[in-house]
Amino acid sequence: MFNFFSELKSKIGDANIDLYNEFNIINVSGKLLYVEGHNGLTILSPTTIAFKIKRGRVVVDGENMFLKELTDNTLMIQGKISKTEIF
């Protein structure tokens, strides 16, 4: 089965393996945000969703956002995503 991140790793190569061992975020058409490697949700509201990552915090701004899926280290946000900031 096709795995986006495995494909990406094979293209970048093992020399840059540090690039993808912390967290990965994919924004699909500004309507779906997939996150791998989060360390806990800190804010949940239709306009702001924030979560912790290793060495920082990510804040997602948008409208009518909701959690589509949440596991220990992945989450999926659906809604109109206007901004994703890393602090």
Partner: peptide, 9 residues
């Protein structure tokens, strides 16, 4: 979350 802001879930 549509009614109140949720923290530290």
């Amino acid at each position: 979350s549509k009614q109140v802001k949720i923290y530290n879930f």
